[in-house]
Write a protein that binds this DNA or RNA. Structure first.
Lengths: 121, 121
DNA sequence: ATTCAACCTGGAGTGCGCTCCAGGTCAACC
DNA sequence: GGTTGACCTGGAGCGCACTCCAGGTTGAAT
């Protein structure tokens, strides 16, 4: 049950210190514990949350939805809502994958066309 | 070999009229033909270019690279460079797909965990 | 006791990719 | 010849997601 300084939390989560503060201000992350002097002290649980948030961000979830998810996680009786939110985003992710696949197909064609062109010169 | 008004070009390409002008200003799109009165007249070839640009944008290619691609297309002796640019972006797209797949796996796990939780209540 | 890096706050600034606006022009139609 | 709606330009504004800044505080190490 160790704790982490802001710099450590940033390093481990992959967010910048500024972003960590920003997420807290925005209510995405629950208020982080403080020392008597007012410095933030991140817990293992905070780090775990941050890791999942990182994952959601990397999958393109917008801040607004991230906030919603963060809020839901603070209330234990919201599992159904969380599931719904994740499912919704899963649909978006699948669509994005499909689109990228179509892109690959199209660009693959264009590339082989270009290559035939190059060979002939 | 028909032509298109700005409104038609926008409708067919999926870009807004403002975006079409913006792309032209930015040199992404070559200067479009004009009527004597100064109105733009898009050709089939413009539409075709726009369609491919749309495709590149949808695959997340940044404006800067789009501009580069647009410039290269105006010089016929740049096929090798175009191929290189597209290949580079293809790598980025593949990485994005891989990342989204990992996301799916992770969220899939979380979802089934949540669902077991829901069932037990 | 002093130093100094790391931290704090509120608020301003940034980069991207558009999007909107004011004020004017053009051209098809009645 | 007048109306009307699509179009023109240069430039300002916007939304997102941070990122940076000034000016001040904290606390571990010397």
């Amino acid at each position: 049950m160790r704790t982490y300084t802001p710099a450590e939390a940033a390093q481990r989560s992959g967010f910048s210190i500024d972003t960590l503060r920003y997420y807290e201000r925005e209510g995405i992350l629950a208020p982080v514990a403080r020392t008597s002097g007012g410095r933030r002290v991140y817990s293992d649980s905070d780090l775990c949350t941050l890791d999942f948030l990182r994952c959601l961000r990397d999958a393109g979830m917008p801040i607004e939805r991230l906030r919603r998810y963060g809020e839901l996680c603070r209330d234990p009786d919201t599992i159904a809502e969380r599931v719904e939110l994740l499912r919704e985003h899963a649909v978006a992710v699948q669509e994005q994958i499909d689109q990228l696949r179509r892109w690959q197909a199209r660009v693959g064609e264009k590339l082989s066309w270009y290559e035939r062109h190059l060979d002939q010169t």
